[in-house]
Design a protein around this nucleic acid. Structure first.
Length: 814
DNA sequence: CAATGACTTATTTTT
DNA sequence: TAAGTCATTG
């Protein structure tokens, strides 16, 4: 947890009066360099404020300046400001920036943190009000799922048909909407084979038994505490005199309720966000919260930050053009005093590999500096994809050409198996009643304690109403297991006890284990928690398990374990470490070598790069078909916001691309350019045609790059394919229709692709040739899509521009 | 208990 | 396609 502690401050609280803290007549450097809108948002300290901050408009600057202002004017003391963020990263950055503004003069702000971290703090103080003990453990998704699995099996439900993951998702959804088991609406009663609500109730009961909470509970328990204890709520309302919320568009119902409870009364709440960047609806975020702000908080002052300091004029205009197609926006107009810069670049490719190859070459060219532009190095370049599987093509390509890259996202350090195993050991030692942790380690490494042995332990524990560890001890005592298992289990139980003794060192407190296990070993003197961790991993045989493992990933896992132990250094004890880890799952690595960044659009929110590539702009992929199927227009609009987020990450160069063919689940599919491409305002877009096309063999694209020599054997075929796509009617149409891109009405622009019928070069009965599927006969024509019965590949639907008349196929040189 | 093969499924992710 | 899960084998 944070190093700041305020526990005394709270009680000493409200006595200090505001008037006593007169406005300080000192200079206020934090106001320097704010534009008028930012300044307004900073100086309007009383009452509700909605700061609508477009991409790159200096939101964090204004937010931190506002906090600095509250403090510098003596309006609030550091511990009276409640400032909530979503990520630890954002919280950290705010802390740093406030520190810089105030010149270290301010001691820490105890209530600046994520929703979850702040809730943990509150919940530890008042745990007993919701039948928890203040040392409750926080379960992560994995623990949740395992627990639910047990409940599902116990309920006699076929876990095949009704997977625990799904139930976890459903319950998570309810918690996002602040629905406790008794409040699940009738409309949702059918969830999970009609057993959802019942299992939800069981799950909650089980969590209380385990003295555990999941992430959703952190919010919900605190809400319940506030609702059921008026005095306490009133106390906190008085205490948190000024509330600030970052990324308000990402709040869910529970977070909204939580904020509303605390802001009641003074209404000094400042929410910062951008409805156009709401991209987390699928995990419970409610754009409605930000759209409704003025209704929720009457008299709210709305401040728009519209001056953009990040991107060039063309990039901003392109992004604005796209987002305009969304309905029900609060509306902002981004502008810049900067240069127009280069237009947003648009380019089509034959397939995904070609796209990756071109981007690789383009990045190399950027490193040299192209068209009079300053060189842009790998560190300043990002590739933003819709779904992580798209990264693969780039990784493959970059590996072959030796372009250094880094992938952001993916499985985090603390989610890796070996880390979770190690931490389960720590958990059992720190809290012997942590059954989930015990289950995880009881047979890891293998101790010959299989299902049968574990069932025995379960039985022992349940019938005596004790934890699994204690149940295990009883099982040993009763000799309920056979030879080897018995010996191993006895050893494990003994070891846990031993580790606990080491942890408690000379100052042994009376803990649950002390009554239960006879101690014949003298307690060692204060062993550092780092040494203790090493001892645990060593004596348990866990390290040895990986040392003996011959799989290629074993060394990496041992490396990770070392890193884990190293990470312990910044904590005072194991408890503190576990607390930290359960809330903070990030793992930023130091990295000196310049690398291109590969990440999803979601992960890119809040970041910026001089050059950004946005590949895969194809209908179905982006916007994602699934998103549209599941939530219709709502989903499409969220996808469009994602497009907006993507474009606005770029400072100087933004390159959008699409491929005509892509392999989807192993099947080749022809792809339509994304409808978002039609929405790009033409005046701000330049259509790129890579050199080396139209049959100019050995074109510059290939030879200009030092990489070309490494092109695969299918070089010729590739060039043919490229020539094909740019000669195709579809591509020509795209170029001809450039002029229509700028249409104010997106619907009109959309006709571009819809009225393709007139352009379609084929009719039923034509013999055609397709690059991947070979020869075939057209059996249907629907707009731009052709139904084709291929001689070899069967019936397919293909976009017209990717086939050529069969008689002209001879022109293709292979 | 490990290895093998059938089978299935296929965004976005933080805490 | 390809990664992951699951059940069956040896």
């Amino acid at each position: 947890m944070s190093s700041f502690d305020d526990s005394d401050a709270f009680e000493a609280a409200s006595a200090a009066s505001l008037s006593a803290r007169a406005m300080a007549a000192r200079p206020m450097p934090h106001l320097d360099g704010l534009n008028p809108a930012q300044r307004e948002a900073v100086e309007q300290m009383e009452g509700p404020v909605l700061m609508l901050a477009g991409a790159g408009t200096g939101k964090t600057k204004a937010l931190t300046a506002r906090i600095a202002h509250l403090l510098a004017t003596g309006t609030a003391r550091p511990n009276e400001v409640l400032a909530v963020t979503f990520t630890n990263k954002a919280a950290r950055e705010m802390k740093n920036r406030i520190g810089a503004l105030m010149g270290q003069a301010v001691e820490g702000m105890p209530w600046l943190g994520t929703f979850h971290a702040i809730c943990v703090k509150l919940l530890r103080r008042h745990a007993e009000l919701v039948d928890l003990k203040s040392n409750f453990t926080i379960l992560d998704t994995d623990d949740q799922v395992r627990l639910m699995k047990q409940l599902i099996n116990a309920a006699g439900i076929d876990e095949k048909r009704w997977p625990a993951r799904q139930l976890a998702g459903i319950i998570d959804g309810w918690k996002n909407r602040a629905l406790t088991p008794d409040k699940v609406p009738a409309a949702d009663a059918g969830a999970f084979n009609r057993r959802g609500p019942e299992l939800y109730a069981q799950y909650q009961a089980r969590l209380i038994e385990l003295n555990a909470v999941d992430f959703g509970d952190l919010l919900l328990h605190v809400i319940r505490i506030f609702q059921e204890n008026e005095d306490l709520l009133a106390q906190y309302q008085r205490w948190f005199r000024y509330i600030l919320v970052d990324e308000y568009q990402d709040t869910n119902v529970a977070q909204y309720l939580w904020l509303r409870l605390l802001a009641q009364g003074h209404s000094n709440i400042c929410c910062v966000g951008d409805d156009d960047q709401s991209i987390y609806g699928w995990r419970g975020a409610e754009v409605g919260n930000i759209l409704r702000f003025e209704k929720d908080f009457p008299g709210a002052k709305v401040v728009r930050l519209e001056q953009n300091y990040r991107s060039t004029g063309h990039i901003l205009a392109a992004a604005s053009g796209v987002i305009e197609a969304n309905k029900g926006r609060l509306g902002k107009t981004l502008w810049t005093e900067g240069e127009d810069g280069e237009k947003v670049r648009l380019i089509g490719h034959w397939d995904g590999e070609e796209e990756a190859r071109w981007i690789g070459e383009e990045i190399e060219a950027m490193g040299q500096g192209t068209r009079g532009m300053d060189p842009i190095g790998p560190n300043d370049i990002a590739i933003l994809v819709r779904a992580s599987h798209q990264m693969r093509a780039f990784e493959d390509r970059f590996l072959t050409i030796g372009l250094p890259y880094r992938v952001i996202g993916g499985p985090r350090f603390y989610e890796r198996m070996e880390i979770r195993d190690a931490m389960a050991y720590f958990r059992v030692v720190v809290s012997p009643e942590d059954d989930l942790a015990f289950e995880r380690i009881v047979n890891t490494p293998k101790r010959g304690l299989g299902d049968k042995a574990q069932a025995t332990i379960q039985r022992m524990a349940r019938s005596n109403g004790v934890s699994l560890l204690e149940g295990a001890r009883l099982a040993v005592e009763a000799k309920a297991l056979s030879g080897k298992g018995l010996k191993e289990l006895a050893r494990l139980v003994d070891q846990v006890h031993h580790w606990r003794a080491l942890m408690q060192g000379g100052l042994r407190q009376v803990g649950p284990m002390d009554d239960l296990i006879e101690e014949d070993r003298p307690a060692a003197d204060a062993l550092s928690h780092i040494e203790l961790a090493e001892v645990i991993l060593d004596e348990s045989g866990y390290t040895a398990m990986w040392q003996n493992d011959k799989t290629p990933e074993a060394p990496g896992r041992l490396e990770n374990l070392k890193e884990l132990v190293k990470a312990l250094e910044s904590f005072e004890n194991l408890q503190g470490f576990l607390e930290h880890v359960s809330l903070i799952m990030d793992n930023e690595q130091d990295d000196n070598e310049p690398k291109v960044t590969l990440m999803t659009l979601h992960a890119a929110k809040g970041l910026e790069f001089p050059a950004v590539f946005l590949p895969g702009w194809e209908d179905g992929l982006f916007p994602s078909q699934r998103s549209m199927d599941e939530t219709g227009l709502k989903g499409l609009e969220e996808e469009r916001r994602l497009a907006y987020v993507g474009i606005t990450r770029a400072e100087e160069v933004c390159t959008i691309s699409f491929a005509g063919n892509r392999r989807v689940y192993g099947q080749w599919q022809s792809q339509l350019p994304s409808r978002f491409i039609d929405e790009l305002p033409q005046a701000h877009v330049e259509i790129l045609t890579p050199p080396g096309l139209h049959g100019h063999q050995g074109g510059m694209a290939a030879s200009a790059s030092p990489v070309s020599g490494m092109m695969r054997g299918s070089d010729l075929q590739e060039k043919a394919a490229r020539a094909d796509v740019y000669n195709s009617p579809g591509w020509k149409r795209l170029q001809q229709n450039q002029g229509r891109f700028g249409m104010r009405q997106p619907s009109e622009a959309k006709n571009v692709t819809i009225d393709a019928e007139a352009v379609s070069a084929f009719t039923v009965g034509d013999r055609v040739f397709h690059q991947k599927f070979g020869y075939g006969e057209v059996i249907s024509v629907e707009g731009d899509k052709l139904g084709i019965a291929f001689d070899k590949a069967g019936e397919k639907h293909v976009v017209g521009r990717f086939v050529v008349a069969a008689d002209s196929a001879g022109d293709v040189p292979f």
